[in-house]
């Protein structure tokens, strides 16, 4: 027999745990994006201001 598991199915995921993991993923997304956006902003600003590492003898 197929179909959605019944609430009493012992193999069905715990909805509270599922929600907790989904929230954890959302928090991780926000943390990573917030950090990377600042880094990307600095890189873009340095490009816009034409700031590049000082090159001497090809270093």
């Amino acid at each position: 027999m197929t179909g959605p598991p019944m609430a009493t199915d012992p193999k069905a995921p715990d909805p509270r745990k599922t929600l907790w993991f989904r929230r954890a993923g959302a928090v991780a997304q926000g943390l990573v994006l917030g950090f990377l956006v600042v880094l990307a902003g600095m890189e873009l600003l340095s490009l816009a201001a034409d700031i590049s590492p000082f090159k001497y003898q090809g270093f």
């Binding site: 993991f21 993923g25 959302a26 928090v27 997304q29 926000g30 943390l31 917030g34 950090f35």
Partner: peptide, 16 residues
């Protein structure tokens, strides 16, 4: 949660 936009992700993004 990590790959889909959500209000919680956006709030965390602003905080981060």
């Amino acid at each position: 949660g990590f790959s889909e936009p959500s209000a919680l992700a956006f709030r965390t993004f602003l905080l981060s």
